[in-house]
């Protein structure tokens, strides 16, 4: 995909596609599901899904800075947005939401953090963009789109209003 094609992708359509897949996969249990977005891009997507699915539960937010495996290399990035999971994790049906799934390390960190709050019954992973080249055995249950990129390219979600995708050369 070219940079222009990516920039013209409708994020709204992708989120609608994700919502449909979640409805198909979770069916009637969807109302019990707790949606958790990973800060920051994942939270934006999670908010949209939460609305589209009319999910009656409060929205969760995860800031995984303290669980990263590259902390000593890249350091802390203090943002005043601590994790907030306003519900019981024990026994919960969790939908974990992120913007881009790449190496899988963010999801690994997020899972570790969620398990520090309790033992969920099930965690499904929903991502807006799945780009290949995983470094860990992690896969998404629900995907907005799949994009193949070169290693020197990066895809970023810009938001919160409007939500657009941007291709960056690194």
């Amino acid at each position: 995909m070219t940079a222009t094609e990516i920039a013209q992708t409708s994020v709204t359509d992708l989120i609608n596609h994700m919502a449909t897949q979640l409805q198909q996969q979770l069916g009637e249990t969807l109302d019990e599901a707790k949606i958790i977005g990973i800060h920051t891009g994942g939270t934006w997507i999670a908010e949209q899904l939460h609305q589209r699915l009319n999910n009656p539960n409060p929205l969760g937010e995860l800031n995984i800075s303290f669980y990263r495996d590259d902390f000593t290399q890249i350091g802390l990035h203090p943002q005043v947005s601590p994790s907030n999971l306003p519900f019981e994790i024990d026994g919960a049906q969790v939908i974990l939401v992120d913007d881009v799934l790449y190496s899988g390390r963010t999801i690994r960190a997020a899972l570790n953090e969620i398990f520090d709050y309790g033992r969920p019954a099930k965690v499904s992973l929903a991502v807006l963009v799945d780009r290949d080249e995983r470094e860990l055995p992690i896969r998404a249950d629900v995907t907005g789109t799949r994009i193949q990129l070169d290693t020197d390219q990066q895809i970023k979600l810009i938001g919160p209003e409007p939500l657009t995708l941007q291709l960056q050369e690194v």
Binding site: N63, S65, F66, P78, V80, P82, N84, E113
Partner: peptide, 23 residues
């Protein structure tokens, strides 16, 4: 200010069931 902002994030760790992060 960076110290104060970073501390803000750590407050929530003390309110959890498992009061620990692997940093």
């Amino acid at each position: 200010t960076e110290i104060l902002d970073t501390a803000e994030n750590f407050v929530s760790v003390g309110n959890r069931a498992a009061k620990k992060v692997p940093l």
